[in-house]
Design a protein around this nucleic acid. Structure first.
Lengths: 334, 334
DNA sequence: CGCTTCCCTGACAACGCTGTCACAAGGACG
DNA sequence: CGTCCTTGTGACAGCGTTGTCAGGGAAGCG
């Protein structure tokens, strides 16, 4: 900038004014400065600008694994919303480890990102000293943190599970199993609890099977096989997230069982599998969008109490919720 | 930092030394400073550090669409490799628009990212003045740019297409169509050309069908239907990328045609569709990894001439490459 | 003509940190 | 006792911007 100033016979301040399109520069001066800028290829150093102004125009997204379509869709939405608001997005993976998450968050706060969208790993309480002391606004996504209330965007897990169970029941299923992901995950637990609650509410048999992950195809196959051979066999399963759904589908294919299925999370080609998979769809794009909206409200000074937004889910009915023909004969209890 | 210094009765420089674990601080001084830091919750301001040191410890990834699994897997790999090397990753979408790409790149260079991994939009020549003038090292991924040679990581498109065609031919197919993505994309064109070349090399009929996209299910369904009804019908298609594969699968399902298929890009559940889809797999994780490797070599001062790395593809044989039973009767030309 | 007002421009400090250099104190050594 | 070296510490400048304030000239006004 000093070089430009010297070359154009003006002060650095005037160059700054031109670069930032500030008013109060005579037209010919501006032309001259602009000419020099183009000629020597000057580019403003945003680092210095940031240091001076205190705002980094950057937000960060911390997720478990960017390659998981659920998170990458959130990522795409967050990036788009950030870009619209002239902010850059830093993405970071915590790989599900609270320790790594701390390190990552600390690094981001050292960089003075303006705000954070975080899918919290584990059960970290909201009052992480490093984070809360920094005053950086955070919006949690997909699962809440413990302790004092924080801005959070989650999806309606009980509602999603209820729609799945009701759909299966309406199709004649009575004994429904639940394959949840590792109980370490809050979403997994919440969905399990909802599963139990809705069973009670509908007066369904209480001895249905519940198995929490991690699930591999190898462990799932014999388990599903066994469940379907019991004296009071299950006729359908609800899977707790996209990973589990995939593995369960592989397992079923492998063992050759026919069984009702409602998956959690929609996935590409769910409609091309035979039978097409009925799923509970939570819209990652809307979730990400909503989170950014909330974050920017805070950045613009919104001081209202922390808010938890529950995003609705939608049951996408395809075919896998039906009672398979092979099971219709020995139709279950009333 | 000044506050800490005052509180601990040392100079800011000593605080700086402690924070950065520089040697040459007496043990008790360090303890005292560390105590104050913890007490008042000091966190180093990396923006200032960066301004002083000139390195941002940040690289950026510019892709078309983060929600596309191919790119999000590259993104995950790049982030991981960057993290290992103590760098943060900024991701940005250009949404396929060269104009937007320019703006995005300019913004990233203003931030003085240390390096860039870019999936170039369109046919931008390598000599983008803003970028090349800045001297920021760039590695292009998935498709090359025109003009002077640049570091580039692409996958072996001719090899991939060849393996697809050879596989289909080995399964008895003779009339094979190619459904490429928009010819605006370099990869789409390269795959088309490879398709033509291998046909010549193998002496296959020259009148096979080629259609470049954008392809929707609606446009694809009648086209595939028509092709399969002609006097010399095609018996198989090769699809030019994951999007096209998906739409083609939907279209086939919709019209109810049986036809051989080899898709470009692997996708989750390709093995659960009936018949399981044979694909040409390009490994986005390795591609991303390789690109970062190359980038950091440049950052560490590697001055060797620009290099184009071609990553091998792998044909994942499942079932969709077979000659459907319904077509086996009127078995095609020798 | 003197005064105010407006427009344009520049000097300067400061954002928070670190590299350089200098300096003081203490011990080793001749 | 003087010299040299080592160790720990601090003063200061400067990274590239921008906010603040001040100043100079032209125009407007009485």
């Amino acid at each position: 900038m000093a070089d430009v100033a010297a070359e154009a016979h003006v002060s650095v301040k005037t160059v700054s004014r031109v670069v930032n399109r500030e008013p109060g520069v005579r037209r010919d001066t501006e032309q001259r400065v602009r000419g020099v800028i183009d000629r020597i290829g000057f580019m403003r150093h945003d680092g210095a600008r940031i240091l001076r102004q205190g705002r980094t125009q950057t937000i960060a997204l911390v997720v478990e694994d960017l390659a998981n379509p659920f998170y990458s869709q959130i990522g795409a939405a967050v990036e788009r919303e950030a870009r619209i608001r002239q902010h850059q997005l830093i993405t970071a993976s915590a790989e599900g480890s609270p320790t790594r998450e701390r390190v990552v968050l600390e690094g981001l706060i050292n960089r003075r990102v303006d705000g954070l969208v975080v899918v919290p790993a584990g059960e970290r309480p909201a009052t992480d000293p490093t984070v809360s002391a920094s005053g950086t606004p955070i919006v949690y996504v997909d699962r809440p943190v413990r302790g004092e209330p924080c801005d959070t965007v989650i999806s309606d897990n009980p509602g999603g599970v209820r729609s799945a169970v009701e759909h299966l029941v309406a199709n004649g299923h009575r004994r429904i199993a639940f394959l949840g992901d590792d109980a370490e995950f809050w979403t997994a637990r919440q969905r399990r609890e909802a599963f139990v609650a809705i069973h009670d509410a509908l007066g369904l048999p209480g001895d249905t099977r519940i198995a929490m992950g991690p699930h591999t195809v190898e462990s799932l196959a014999p388990r599903l096989d066994a469940w379907s051979r019991e004296r009071t066999p299950i006729t359908a399963v609800i899977t707790g997230n996209n990973r589990v759904t995939l593995n369960a589908l592989h397992a079923m294919r492998q063992v050759g069982i026919e069984m009702g299925l409602v998956g959690y999370d929609d996935f590409e080609l769910a409609d091309l599998i035979e039978p097409a998979v009925t799923v509970v769809h939570q819209d990652p794009t809307s979730i990400g969008q909503k989170a950014v909206l909330q974050l920017f409200a805070r950045l613009l000074g919104d001081e209202s109490p922390a808010q938890t937004v529950v995003m609705p889910t939608r049951l996408i009915v395809r075919e896998s919720g039906r009672l398979p023909a092979s099971l219709r004969a020995r139709k279950a209890l009333p």
